[in-house]
């Protein structure tokens, strides 16, 4: 299967998550019958974020797979002189993080797993006293991802290459940042949980 066909699957999940965070969400929401909470603005935001984090996770896992495949000597994504993952993911000078020495794909998987946990927890317990903290943690984590993205983009500029898979993961982080910001704004407003009575947060 062509690598860009696989990339488009990750991309579709992320784009769907992004759309769920926009005003078109009621028209495209396929979850509303199973999860009625996604009919609310809060529900749409958390569902959208969950899709974005899942797409970020899968594309990160794919880059880890590429990292391993390249170490075996295979070529996985080098069809174009500009759009070329092999030259970056396969380059030992850049393909691991400078602090832990772990592949960037693994770092991405761990980061998006943590964001996914925050998102699902916020969705499940919107009135918990910890929810504002979790939203801020998500926002902080995605902001912390920006310097990492800047570092990786600097590698791309240095090598004159663009890694489409890495870029997709970076975009997922930026969309997640926007999502957590919107959640924070919503949580500070009166529209946060009009569907839930305060007492129902304790079962």
């Amino acid at each position: 299967m062509n690598e860009y066909a696989v990339l488009s699957i990750h991309g579709i999940v992320i784009v769907y998550g992004l759309l769920l965070m926009t005003p078109v969400a009621p028209q495209i929401n396929i979850l509303k019958s199973r999860y009625p909470s996604t009919l609310t603005k809060r529900g749409q935001l958390t569902a959208g974020l969950a899709f974005v984090c899942f797409g970020g996770f899968t594309v990160s896992a794919h880059t880890l797979w590429m990292h391993n495949k390249l170490s075996e000597g295979a070529s996985v994504c080098s069809g174009n002189s500009l759009l070329n993952c092999d030259g970056l993911i396969g380059n030992i000078a850049y393909n691991t993080d400078p602090l832990l020495g772990q592949p960037w794909g693994l770092i991405g998987m761990a980061a998006f797993t943590a964001l996914m946990w925050l998102t699902l927890t916020i969705g499940k317990e919107p009135l918990s006293p910890q929810t504002p903290l979790f939203i801020r943690m998500g926002l902080g984590a995605t902001i912390a991802g920006l310097p990492v993205i800047a570092l990786l983009v600097s590698y791309e500029i240095k090598e004159g290459l663009i890694c489409p898979f890495c870029t997709t993961a970076h975009i997922a982080n930026i969309i997640a940042l926007v999502g957590f910001f919107l959640l924070l704004k919503l949580q500070e407003s009166d529209e946060w949980a009009p569907d839930i009575k305060k007492t129902s947060s304790r079962r």
């Binding site: 996770f57 896992a61 880890l64 797979w65 391993n68 075996e72 998987m109």
Partner: peptide, 15 residues
């Protein structure tokens, strides 16, 4: 989800 992802990568590659 994390461990399933790791297992898929581990079983399909030999780094």
């Amino acid at each position: 989800m994390f461990f399933v992802g790791l297992l898929i990568v581990a079983f399909t590659t030999n780094p």
